[in-house]
Amino acid sequence: MALLEIDAIDAFYGDFQALFGLSLSVDEGQAVAVIGANGAGKSTLLKAVAGSVPTRSGRVLYDGTDLADLPSHRRAATGISLVPEGRRIFSSLSVEENLLVGAFSERPGPWTLPKIYETFPLLERLAKRSAARLSGGEQQALAIGRALMNNPRLLLLDEVSLGLAPGVVKSLYAVIPIIRDNGTTVLIVEQDVNQALAASDMAHCMLEGKVSLSGRASELSRAAISAAYFGSEVHT
């Protein structure tokens, strides 16, 4: 059964519509990638699931229940964790305090402070440092660690690779199998197609607020992806 079932949602920023009747489902235990160009609505999709952006029509079902009336802080408590675009680290807190804030809902599970430090050894070294003084890669590791402290059932990753060196991106993606092994379903939003496909079972391509292509990550052809990625412009 699907852990996350998105059924024909519309989402808006003010008067600007970002999602148009988007549908998508994620099975428990899967890693699913959503790829697409800038402005395709990928981040909006994650925000709609996490509750930062309201949906106007359609339903978001999580573990069979409709999330419509659940504010974002209650969604976190049910096990939905978002690693937001731009990382959104709490800059006046130390690294360790950021992680502890991640555990605010006190959900039980495998992820504890020692386990985070075991998975991201660099965070242990930086534990007492002010989070404002981290490099981009360190901040991204912290953002992922902070989300994991919630022991999520569904982890939403938004543009993990953005602005980071290839080596750093590789080391961050190396953690995804560990996250999956600990029972978390992962939904990855990326512009970096190769990285996302390599880490996922299923992939969906988004264009102008809709899903334009879906399939098994290993079976999608480059041509089909690029057509779905750039939309009608390829044909005209």
Partner: peptide, 17 residues
């Protein structure tokens, strides 16, 4: 800690529950 996190970034704080 939740106070200080909210002060830094209320939306991110809500995502933490």
């Amino acid at each position: 800690r939740a106070f200080r996190a909210t002060s830094d970034d209320p939306e991110a704080a809500r995502l933490m529950g």
